[in-house]
Design a protein around this nucleic acid. Structure first.
Lengths: 194, 194
DNA sequence: AGCCTCTAGCTAATCGCATTAGCTTCCTTG
DNA sequence: CAAGGAAGCTAATGCGATTAGCTAGAGGCT
């Protein structure tokens, strides 16, 4: 094999680290090249474009997040699983804001985009967790969407510095989780009224 | 005789319309200039930079959204107010995805940034609505953040095409609103347990 | 060992925006 | 009716992404 110093994967990894530091919007080919100790055009030997690079970061992020959430939920159920999964996700976003932004900015490029299975794995974890609440089948999709909405919304707002007032954001997140948990437990018995 | 008298406000309005059509990321000075029938550099007679333009769009959006939400909540209370306000917000985002993106992408430029009062007006509407639930004062901030998170998250995911499965997104939103309403009503009596 | 090939990297262009400089026109105002 | 300034325009600059074409050194082959 030729000298395998840099690879698409290692470049993506470096870009992911960079993006978490400087913010997704400030990602530039020049900055990344500098980090890697090469000249800008050389990056194109590993990645076809900046868009391609961003997409690779997104896949990496979604995969990592999926693993983290799955591991957190593993072995728990009900409110414990919800809390653990949600906390894991929030922690991931706080530690990797750039990657999370990349993951949200990307759109699948086609039916065989690896981003699709990666995000499906995340959804599968949430679904597994929700199933523990024994909701009415017809409600699961709505509960899933509601769950995704709160978690995504909270993570996004927090990352954007949207929570200004000096009240503990940690407390708010705990409150949010309890709120969802209680709502789901109620929903398990009496379907949410229409 | 210059054609239509352009002003910073009219340019911003045109940019907002454009951004709703082509997406915030595809906003370019050239495209906007073309729409206005002038050459690109002429835009700088009304706006100091593209960043400035984006910021103006954000202020416009936040102001419009604030008005819409306030009007929707007006005269209602409890679950009705929540539903009306939430629906108003979702409708606004669906009709003006570009403006909404702009509003979320912006950061206040300083303590006297008009964006600040504009967003405070939105928060005030939500606060007024929430007060109808008679929550424990210590919980209001958490409830507010939770509410913002769900609504923001749902709107963002929907705008990004994040809800793939073919189950009615409208139904999911109704479900979400009921879910929040019920949770808040419960919280009004027994504080959410810790 | 000597040679061949393949490719990461490099330098030197190109291209597409955003932004600036400097000039012109024409409405507005005194 | 002259002066001033605002709003446009063309030409030029600059920066970041991308492309073209060249070079060298690591493996692999004989």
């Amino acid at each position: 094999m030729p000298k395998a110093r840099l690879t698409p994967a290692s470049v993506t990894e470096a870009a992911a680290a960079l993006v978490d530091e400087v913010g997704f919007d400030n990602l530039s080919m020049g900055l990344l090249a500098e980090r890697l100790g090469i000249k800008t055009p050389s990056l194109y030997k590993h990645v076809t474009s900046q868009a391609d690079l961003a997409h690779r970061i997104a896949i990496l992020a979604m995969t990592e997040a999926g693993d983290t959430i799955r591991d957190a939920i593993q072995g728990r159920s009900g409110g414990d699983a919800l809390a653990a999964g949600a906390q894991a996700m929030r922690a991931y976003v706080r530690e990797h804001p750039g990657r999370y932004t990349a993951a949200n900015a990307t759109r699948p490029t086609g039916p065989d985009d690896p981003f699709i299975p990666a995000s499906e794995r995340v959804l599968a974890s949430w679904a597994a967790m929700l199933s523990g609440y024994g909701l009415d089948p017809g409600q699961e999709i709505h509960a899933m969407r509601t769950l995704r909405s709160v978690l995504h919304g909270f993570a996004t707002l927090e990352a954007a510095g949207g929570f200004q007032i000096d009240a503990s954001v940690d407390d708010s997140f705990d409150w949010l989780i309890k709120f969802i948990d209680q709502g789901l437990r109620v929903g398990a018995n009496s379907a949410v009224a229409r």
